[in-house]
């Protein structure tokens, strides 16, 4: 691409399905996922990369959906909460969150789950401090965080 363009045609995979789309270049990834693909489980909380609610998985790594253009996902493998839920890979975390009520309004929850899963992939036995550290970029206004930390620790088999 050597000439500037205002829309881009792209092909990517989202939740293990192929997607082709022509998007305005200014649309960010989370708006594209929500508004164009109907994947409303990713949420928009601040649109400046602080709250973490829009976190999605891009080529295996968690990223802020509001700090990436949709066109930058061209050729990428994207996973949102909908895909991660259906794959079953979050099942243990979801069950622990449910049992411990590690969510109230649920707005932060999909991103919190994806972030917690990313932590456990890297570090299967995180300490409470490591859990709090890793989740420190995800704002939750309801719970006070403790039950979330407990739930992640429980799944990691750590002492709670």
């Amino acid at each position: 691409m050597t000439e500037p363009s205002k829309t881009v045609q792209m092909a990517l995979r989202v939740n293990r399905e192929s997607v082709e789309a022509t998007v305005p270049v200014r649309r960010n990834l989370v708006d594209f996922l929500r508004d164009d693909l109907g994947l409303t489980g990713s949420h928009v909380g601040c649109e400046h990369g602080v709250c973490g609610a829009c976190t999605v998985v891009v080529d295996g790594a968690i990223m802020r959906g509001c700090l990436m253009l949709a066109v930058q996902a061209d050729g990428c493998e994207i996973e949102t909460i909908e895909g991660a839920d259906q794959s079953g890979r979050l099942a243990a975390l979801q069950a622990a969150f449910h049992r411990r009520n590690a969510l109230q309004c649920g707005f932060c929850t999909p991103a919190m789950l994806l972030t917690a899963a990313a932590l456990l992939e890297q570090n299967s036995k995180p300490s409470r401090d490591e859990i709090r550290d890793y989740l420190s970029g995800n704002f939750c206004r309801c719970t006070g965080y403790q039950e979330i930390v407990d739930a992640v620790a429980e799944v990691a088999g750590a002492d709670t």
Binding site: R34, T40, G41, H43, D85, F97, H98, N101
Partner: peptide
């Protein structure tokens, strides 16, 4: 007891107002 509503929210199946078109 855990909450009924929580299961939907954990699956990303919540419906907040901005999700409605």
């Amino acid at each position: 007891l855990p909450r009924d509503r929580a299961k939907r929210l954990l699956a990303g199946r919540g419906q907040y107002v901005d999700d409605i078109q």
